[in-house]
Design a protein around this nucleic acid. Structure first.
Lengths: 340, 340
DNA sequence: ATGAAAGCGCTAACAG
DNA sequence: CTGTTAGCGCTTTCAT
């Protein structure tokens, strides 16, 4: 057990040096494992022993000040409303810590003023870079102040392309969903899409169509509905689809919440999933998709990976290896469960 | 737009002092809004102007070093698996920032080694206190190292009572659920409980019984089942209840996931909620409860509030106002929706 | 190989 | 009311 606690003045390098009978420099060198300078291995051992004896703990702030380098990245996100934010954080944190960097997380509520203030705070802490993450894929306006430090966007992008960004490959995801359904033999596939215009709706639809055409199926407008992106929206849209003269044998819901609603509409009609009608979702919102009956086959949004790729991009930029504002796209894998 | 950016050496207080033609002390005094000393308001104005001109931004780390006070709290939690962690973070962050404190968030995966390491890291950053939050209410073993700094537990408690803690009032929650059902006229109420032994199961059951007895209803063992705490577990348990010779007219599910399963069991039998049978949940896992059809009436777990109370407790302890390890209990409100 | 000394940006006594 | 001085804990030349 260490000998210092919050009450006693913390053990410093000076104490360690004194205890080991060496200079502060020596201590610093040893403790930082600097092998570019050669020191007597006996000295090294003495220092290590002294540090252990005294329960020495480096002061990260002091080191940052001396080195002019904080080892911190700031992550700003709308944490409150975001079941997804957690995954981005997880991915970013893991990746960052493998680089010896830490994450300072600032949550905002998409209030631009609060957002700028939050970033200001991060800059006062001298973060070396910023990750700006959105909860749904879209164009964003990053506060100007973010330009003072390398910044990368996650699950969003700058309308004028001024920042590097990482976003999900919506198109490939839509294609993958369609292909899965086609592979199961479906030809009449209903599509319950999100609000038209947003990147997720556009991309998923494009991929969906591309896959259909490649399989020789012409997309049918009658089978496509844009619903309100909730369970209720999914319920209504699915109900509409099922009332068609020639109803689809499968439904692709552009998110899991709508799929949840579609399940209800389907079950209400006494139909069985997937025997009578197959359903595939998008997002992989675990809480829903894993617990629906039957469990929902869906396309996952790779939040964790986006977080980690975001940090990669940031590391590159910080290191000055690259200053171009490329947009990296990450794949949306299929999660096979039991609804197809 | 400010005149400094990441490339140029940042503007320091010295620069501001020079620009304003005053001493560094004066700058420090003005910028910290110290009204205990009196300075010429003209000086004050000059300093402010200079700071603005130069785009001065205080260096939080340097200030912390000088003041021997970081203004940081560390929050450690199993973030990955936790849809709830976010809410605790939100509550804690809001409360902390109103005290001028920041939160350093460390996520662990309930691996004790990683956990100690994470705390070690926080201590290196010289956090003034620690909040240790669990994702489900239980007794925990906090790493010894946490003792070096004031620490409070959220949604968990130390088996030996060595730390102050804030936990949900499970008992009152269970009582509230029962009372709601009783108020709707139900007398035969099924109870699908969590794994026996855990605080949530024990407390909710006690409260449930207490309310029943007060209403003159004797708890009936036949109506109580401990299920696996998932949608499947809820499905099976509800099915069992519905097969009873005298089935219940309402079911209290000890969490929303089980309620989700119960819905399916109920609907499969052609029964309507709440007309034929009422359902009440616990936890208020929004993604589920708000989107089920009908939306689920449930008892909310007050994560956000626990986070904020946790910070309060920590502030007290840090300020030395209190060193006792009291356990604060916070209320679980009823969320009225449409299933009762 | 080791130690002395300067400095990172800021605060806080204390003297003017 | 202002300026000087001395740290805070650590890193990093630069002599020795």
């Amino acid at each position: 057990m260490s000998t210092n606690d919050a009450r006693n003045r913390a053990v410093t390098m000076k104490d360690v040096a004194a205890h080991a009978g060496v200079s502060r420099t020596a201590v610093s060198l040893v403790l930082n494992g600097r092998h570019d300078v050669t020191l007597a291995s006996e000295t090294r051992a003495r220092v290590l022993q002294a540090a252990a004896d005294l329960g020495y703990r480096p002061n990260a702030g002091a080191r940052a000040l001396a080195q002019q380098r904080s080892d911190w990245y700031g992550l700003v996100t709308e944490i409150v409303t975001a079941p997804f934010a957690v995954e981005v954080i997880k991915g970013a944190q893991d990746r960052a810590s493998s680089d010896g960097k830490y994450l300072l997380i600032a949550s905002t509520e998409s209030d631009p003023v609060a957002e700028s203030a939050a970033i200001e705070r991060l800059l006062e802490q001298r973060v070396e870079g910023l990750i700006y993450a959105a909860t749904w894929h879209r164009a964003v306006n990053v506060p100007e102040i973010a330009r003072e430090v390398p910044t990368v966007l996650v699950n969003c992008f700058d309308a004028e392309g001024r920042y590097p960004a990482v976003v999900p490959d919506e198109r490939a995801g839509g294609r993958r969903a369609a292909e899965r359904l086609l592979a199961a033999g479906h030809r009449r596939i209903g599509f319950v899409n999100l609000d038209p215009g947003i990147p997720a709706a556009v991309g998923r639809r494009e991929g969906f169509h591309a896959a259909l055409r490649e399989a020789g199926v012409e997309p049918d407008d009658l089978l496509e509905i844009s619903g309100h992106a909730t369970a209720h929206g999914g319920f209504d849209a699915a109900a509409e689809l099922l009332e068609l003269r020639e109803p689809p044998t499968a439904i692709f819901c552009a998110n899991d919440r709508m799929a949840m609603g579609a399940y209800d509409a389907i079950k209400e009609r006494g139909l069985r999933i997937p025997r009578d009608i197959a359903v595939i979702g998008f997002d992989n919102q675990e809480l829903i998709s894993a617990y629906l009956r039957p469990a929902l086959t869906t396309i996952a949004l790779p939040f964790e990976q986006m977080g980690s790729v975001g940090v990669d991009l940031l590391a590159e930029t910080t290191a000055g290896e690259s200053t171009d504002t490329k947009i990296v796209t990450v794949d949306c894998p299929l999660l096979e469960r039991s609804s197809v």
